[in-house]
Amino acid sequence: MKNAWKRVVFCAFVLCLAIGLAGPAQAEYPEKQITTYVVFAPGGSMDSSARGMAAGAEKILGQPMVIVTKDGGAGTVGLSVLAGDKPDGYTIAAATSTGILRIPLRRKVPYKPLADFTPIYAYAAVASATVVRPDSQFDTMQDLIDYAKKNPGKIKYGTAGAGSPMHLVMEVIAMEEGIQWTHIPFKGSSPAETALLGGHVDVVSTGDMDKAISGQLKTLCVHTKDRMEQLPEVPTTLELGYDYFNDTLFAFYGPAGMDPEKVKALESAFAQAVDMKPFRKVAEQFGLVPMKMGSEEYTQFLEESWPKQVKLLKDLNLIEEAATEPR
C-alpha cells in the first residue's frame, strides 16, 4: 500500500517535470499562460477592468491570462515584484500610472519608475469628479468658488488621500483661484462619499464614478480630458480654465527589456480587447474612459509627464524633491 502511494507521487512528479520541459521547442509567442499581476484588491475598477481586458485578449492570444492579485502600497508592491521578474513575456502586470508617476515622487520606492519597466499598453483613462450632495446649495463650480472666496477655509472637501490626483485637482483650483479650503483625507473615495452623504464634509473629489453617473450625487465638474459620455452636461476642469486634468491611466507593464516582438503581440491583442464586450461592460459601469495607447506612445507619455509632475507637486508645496530617482 505504502509503495503504491510512493509510486503515485513519483509518477505525478515525473509528469510535472515532463510538462514543464516540453515547452522550449520553437513556437510562436505566447505558448503558455501569461501571469498577470493586478496591483489593487479585487472588486475595484482596476481589478475588474484588468479582468475584462484579459478576457478579451486571451481569445486573441490563444493562451489564458491568469490574474494574480498583488495589492498593497497603493500599487507599488505589485510593481516592485514585477521589476524583479524575468522579461520573458509570461509575467506582466496591470497597474495605474500612479505607481510610476506619482507615488515614487512622494516616497522612495524600490524600483526605478522609468527604467525598470516596459510599458506595454494603456487601455483606459480614470475618471474623477467634484461632487456634492444632491440637495446642496452649490449647483456649479462657480457657486462653490464664490462661497469659498467669501468664507476662506470653511469649505471642507474629502478625497481618497493626500497626493491623490483627486487631491491635486482641488489644490490646483484653489491655487489658481486664490482661495482656501480644508482638505480631509479618507481611506479611499467610498468613505469620503459616506462622509459627504452624512454632511461631515461639503464636497468630495471622488474617484468612484458610480454615484455621480447614477445621479445619487450632484456632479459640479469632471476631471477628465474630454467630457464624459455618461455625463454630457457636466463641464471639465480644462473647460473651466484650470490647467489640470486627471491623467491617471490603467495600463499593462512588463519588466524592462522585453522582446519587441512579444510587446507587439500583446499590443495588438490589447487593442482588440478594448473594443470587446467584457471590457466595455466594466468601463461603462465604473465610468472609465476606454483608450488605445501603444507601447511607444505610452513610454513617451510617461517620460514627458515625469518632469511635469515634479513641477506640479513642487508648486503645490507637497514635495521638495522627487523621492525616487526616475532611472
Binding site: K211, S214, Q285
Partner: peptide, 27 residues
C-alpha cells in the same frame, strides 16, 4: 440602501453588484 460598503468584504461584493449592472443605493 446607500451604496456604501461597510467593510472590505461588502466592498468586494459591491464590485459584484456593479459588474452585473446593479448599482447599490436607494434606486
Amino acid at each position: 440602501t446607500l451604496g456604501i460598503p461597510g467593510d472590505i468584504i461588502t466592498a468586494v461584493i459591491m464590485g459584484a453588484f456593479l459588474i452585473q449592472g446593479f448599482i447599490p443605493g436607494p434606486l
